[in-house]
């Protein structure tokens, strides 16, 4: 979502730049009495003078704009998964802040759990407010593999220097039936 936001903001910036320059050029041309360059005012001025607020197209467009605004608000205000999560730092005097990419941790945990015998197709969902991790691991396998999965995940979290304690939830999914 952060990348989408950046692209949208870049697009908005370019639209503002192009629109602003076009407006400035057209306004200067009009001020000195020259004919318009790209925008022909007479083609859209007359419809605007004729159309009323009650015409069906106006509330239709207005409600579409409102829906777009609502969608934008919803997407921006809902909680986003953090991109970075804080990890334990060494005990030392250095002012070092350590963090790790959330997605890379999820990938590592999945790969480690998939290496457990009889466990496949693991998915992991890591959330938290930077230093308070909540990890949900959902492998496909027999229920009796759960302790082994927990052990592997704990080992991985220790290796990654995750801030302890991590709220860990292992949700085993049924293994696929072999035809």
């Amino acid at each position: 979502m952060r990348l989408v936001n950046r692209l949208l903001a870049l697009l908005l910036g370019l639209v503002l730049l192009a629109g602003g320059l076009l407006l400035a050029v057209e306004a200067v041309l009009a001020a000195v009495g020259h004919p318009p360059w790209l925008v022909r005012f007479d083609t859209w001025l007359a419809p605007l003078q004729r159309t009323t607020l009650g015409d069906p197209i106006v509330p239709g467009i207005a409600l579409a704009v409102a829906a777009l605004g609502l969608l934008l608000l919803f997407v921006q205000l809902r909680p986003w998964a953090p991109r970075l999560l804080v990890i334990r730092r060494r005990s030392g005097a250095e002012p070092v802040h350590w963090s790790v990419y959330r997605r890379s941790v999820e990938r590592e945990v999945c790969a480690a759990v998939d290496a457990v015998a009889g466990v496949t197709e693991t998915t992991a969902r890591l959330r938290g407010k930077r230093s308070r991790w909540r990890l949900t691991v959902s492998p496909r396998g027999r229920a009796d593999s759960r302790p082994q999965v927990r052990e592997v995940v704990a080992g991985q979290l220790d290796r990654i220097a995750a801030p302890l304690p991590v709220k860990l939830r292992v949700s085993m999914r049924r293994p696929r039936r072999v035809a």
Partner: peptide, 17 residues
């Protein structure tokens, strides 16, 4: 209107940059 256009263009540059 021209001044508003220049202002919008400047804001666009700042936003893109």
């Amino acid at each position: 209107a021209a001044a508003v256009g220049v202002l919008l263009a400047a804001l666009g540059v700042l936003l893109a940059r």
